[in-house]
C-alpha cells in the first residue's frame, strides 16, 4: 500500500466484516509533537484473546480467517518502521480498536494520501454502517458524522449524484478548513 488512507480503508473493511454497525475513524496530525495517529474503532463482534494474540503475525493466519489476513501485519509494520507504535484491543461481543502512531517527520512515513476518497468509498459503499470521522490537525478538529445526513435523506440513496457531491465537498472542505486554521494561527 502506498498511502495510509489505503491502510485505513483496509482496516475499516475488517470492521465491516466483523458486522460492526458503528465505525469511528480518527486521524490526528500534530506537527509540534511530531506525531500522526490513526485510530479505527468499531462495535463489531470482536475477538477472543487467542485470536487477538495471533492477529498481527502474518505467518499464522489461516486461509479461513483470510478476511483479517495480511492487512493488520502490514499496517503494524508500517508504523513500526517510522518509530511509531501499533496496538489492537478487542473483546468478544464488544468490538475492536486498532491504533497506529507514526513519527510525522520520519522519512519512511507514507503520506496520508487521499483520505476523502477512502471515506467516500466507505460511506457510499456501506450505507448501513453509521460512520464517524474525526480529523485533527494541530489541535483543530473537524468531525463528520453521517447520521444527521441519513436522517434527512430518508428514502434517497447516498449514491444520488447531488448527495455524493454534498458529502464529498463537506469532507474535503472540512479537512481543508482545519489545516488552514492551524496555519493562520501560526502566522
Amino acid at each position: 500500500m502506498r498511502e495510509l488512507a489505503l491502510h485505513i480503508l483496509d482496516i475499516a473493511e475488517n470492521s465491516i466484516s466483523a458486522n460492526a454497525d458503528r465505525i469511528r475513524i480518527s486521524v490526528e496530525e500534530d506537527l509540534e509533537d511530531d506525531i500522526l495517529k490513526i485510530r479505527i474503532e468499531d462495535n463489531g463482534k470482536g475477538m477472543d484473546a487467542a485470536t487477538l494474540a495471533k492477529i498481527t503475525d502474518p505467518f499464522v493466519t489461516s486461509r479461513k480467517s483470510r478476511k483479517v489476513g495480511l492487512g493488520i501485519p502490514f499496517f503494524k509494520a508500517a508504523a513500526e518502521a517510522c518509530e511509531g507504535s501499533f496496538s489492537i484491543q478487542s473483546a468478544l461481543g464488544e468490538g475492536t480498536t486498532v491504533e497506529a502512531t507514526f513519527k510525522h517527520s520520519h522519512i519512511d512515513r507514507m503520506p496520508l494520501g487521499d483520505i476523502s476518497s477512502t471515506l467516500i468509498t466507505l460511506l457510499i459503499g456501506t450505507p448501513e454502517v453509521h460512520w464517524i470521522f474525526d480529523y485533527t490537525f494541530n489541535q483543530n478538529r473537524f468531525t463528520f458524522d453521517d447520521e444527521p445526513i441519513k436522517n434527512i435523506l430518508e428514502g434517497v440513496p447516498l449514491s444520488e449524484p447531488a448527495v455524493m457531491t454534498f458529502i464529498r465537498e463537506t469532507i474535503e472542505e472540512g479537512i481543508q478548513n482545519v489545516r488552514l486554521e492551524s496555519s493562520i494561527k501560526q502566522i
Binding site: D10, E13, K67, F74, T118
Partner: peptide
C-alpha cells in the same frame, strides 16, 4: 466493487472512485 486487502492494493479504491465520479458528472440516478 471488491474491497478486500488484495483489491485495495491492486487499486480498487481508484476503480470505485472512477465509477462514483461518472455518476456525479453525468448525473446518473
Amino acid at each position: 466493487v471488491g474491497m478486500g486487502t488484495v483489491g485495495i492494493a491492486a487499486g480498487a479504491r481508484e476503480t470505485l472512485k472512477a465509477i462514483l465520479d461518472m455518476i456525479e458528472k453525468d448525473n446518473l440516478s
